[in-house]
C-alpha cells in the first residue's frame, strides 16, 4: 500500500515538473518534438533512478556514519557527473541502439536539477504517507520514489510536447511567440494537475 501511495503521489500529486519545479530547463528546451521528448524522458528516468540508489547508499554508509552530511551537495553532484559519464560509456559498448536513442541527451542530464533534486530529497525529507508518522524512506521506497518521479517527469514532458507540436502551427501574437506561450500553456496544465491534490 505504501508503495502505491508513493507512486501515485510522485506521478500525479507532486509531479516533479508541474508542482516541484525541478528540471524545467530541459523541459522547455527539448519539448518541441514528441520524439525528442520521449528520448529525453527515457534518459532522465534511467539516470534519476540509478543516481538516487547510488547517492542513497553513499549517504547511508559513508556520509552519515562519519558525520559528513554537509558534504552532501558536493559529493552528490560529483557522483552524478561521474555516473552519467559511465552510463554513456557502458551504453555505447553494450547497446548501441539504446545509445543512439538516449546518447545525445546524456551530457545534458548532469546539469538537470531534477537528478540532484531527487537525490537530495530522498535523504533529507521526511515523508508522511497515508496517515503514517513522517519517516525517512528506506532503500526500496527511495528507489520506487525515484522511478515514479521520473515517470511523472516523462508523463508531463510528453503531454507538453504533444501540445507544443500543435502550438507551433497556431497563429500567436508576436510577443507571445516561443517561450511565453509555452509557459502559459504549462501554467494551465499545472492547474489541471492541481486537481489531483488531496487524493493521497
Amino acid at each position: 500500500m505504501e508503495y502505491f501511495l508513493i507512486i501515485v503521489s510522485a506521478i500525479f500529486v507532486n509531479n516533479i515538473l508541474l508542482a516541484q519545479f525541478l528540471g524545467i530547463c530541459p523541459f522547455l528546451g527539448v519539448s518541441n518534438k514528441l520524439s525528442t521528448a520521449t528520448g529525453m524522458s527515457g534518459a532522465v528516468c534511467f539516470v534519476i533512478t540509478l543516481a538516487t540508489v547510488v547517492t542513497y547508499l553513499l549517504n547511508r554508509y559513508l556520509l552519515v556514519p562519519f558525520g559528513l552530511q554537509f558534504l552532501q551537495t558536493i559529493s552528490f553532484i560529483l557522483v552524478i557527473a561521474a555516473l552519467v559519464q559511465m552510463v554513456e560509456i557502458v551504453l555505447k559498448k553494450i547497446s548501441p541502439s539504446l545509445y543512439q536513442a538516449l546518447g545525445i541527451f546524456l551530457p545534458l542530464i548532469t546539469t538537470n536539477c531534477a537528478v540532484l533534486g531527487v537525490a537530495i530529497t530522498v535523504v533529507t525529507k521526511d515523508f508522511a504517507l497515508g496517515g503514517a508518522a513522517p519517516h525517512m524512506l528506506n532503500l526500496g521506497q527511495a528507489t520506487v520514489y525515484a522511478l515514479a518521479t521520473s515517470l511523472g517527469y516523462g508523463l508531463a514532458m510528453c503531454l507538453f510536447a504533444g501540445l507544443r507540436e500543435h502550438l507551433a502551427g497556431c497563429d500567436v501574437p508576436k510577443a507571445f511567440k516561443g517561450l511565453p506561450i509555452a509557459l502559459i500553456t504549462v501554467g494551465i496544465m499545472a492547474m489541471a494537475f492541481l486537481g489531483f491534490s488531496g487524493i493521497v
Binding site: 510577443a175 507571445f176 509555452a182 502559459i184 504549462v186 501554467g187 494551465i188 499545472a190 492541481l194
Partner: peptide, 13 residues
Amino acid sequence: APGAFLVLGYLMV
C-alpha cells in the same frame, strides 16, 4: 504552481 508559470509567461511578453 500554476501562477508561477503564468506570471513568468506574461512578464516575458
